[in-house]
Amino acid sequence: MNTTLTTVPATTTPAGPAHAPRQLRWLLRLHRPALLAGAALVLLTGAGLLWLGGPLADASAAAWKRYNACAFDERCSYDQDAVIRYKDVYNYTTYAVLAVPFLIAAWAGGSLTGREMESGTARLAWTQGVSPARWLASRLAFPTLAALAATGLLTLLHRLAWTGSEDRIDTALVWDHYPTFYANGTVPVALALAGLAIGVLAGLVLRRAVAALAVATAALGALWAAVHTALPHLWPAVTRVTGLREGPRGEGIWAGQGVLTADGDRLDAPCLTSMLPGCETTLSDMGAVSFYRDIHPAAHYWPLQLVASGIILAVAALLVLAAFRLLRHRTP
């Protein structure tokens, strides 16, 4: 009986690089609906941003020009709808850009690994000539590129649309308005990659699609909240010192404010100008000589963005490492 064993084909280990395109093809096939929906969302938001930065911004700017020109003339007419439409579309597209990382996290947790672990199709793949590590690598590699492309394109378009509105639309949002701050930079790109890593790991750990979807989305929110809380401290702030009558001054992202004493000590401000009744006495009792405010001016935009993105990417890298180690620990 054993002699017939020789008729079994010789062992062929699947070739590495030649194997990758085959896996990619099936990954795309399995996630075709999600991929199409994601592409549609990106294209729609991208088109919205182009519309926003072009015709909508022009119409809104023209309306503002007319409005400012006619001052307080009661018979003045301007296109109020254009102003409102610009504002609405700006808000919708900004939140759409910021939602993309969460959609990626939810998809990665729910569909990419969670459902495969829950239904056992991951085990099917592992017994179909795809080793667990390679299976995981394929589930990270292409989605990483897709997430980079999607969020990179959207934040770039958002930045272009926002830059085009500066100085000509009176209600255009300032750079440090937080949704604008994030949607204009690299943080959504980093968050998208972290969302992918969080989702993939959550699916592997929880082995249940719905639970992984929920946990991944919540965990990405927590990561963003943590980075947001730490944001003012991620780069040395500029201190602006002002007189006691004037109160603390300075526009930008605040890192803190208070009063300075003659010794140079920083104390919490009990009130914000000595012109308020009782405030002057309190301030002099404290020995305060001036107010201060630590701020990030517009020039700190990129340092803040890049440090925040770097931290998020480091977290993402750790999560990917954890996912590979978990799989390595579970399977031989």
Binding site: P14, T121, L124, G129
Partner: peptide, 14 residues
């Protein structure tokens, strides 16, 4: 693994 065939109890398929 490449030389082993396996059918899981739940017959998972995509």
């Amino acid at each position: 693994r490449p030389r082993v065939g396996f059918v899981d109890q739940g017959k998972p398929l995509y």
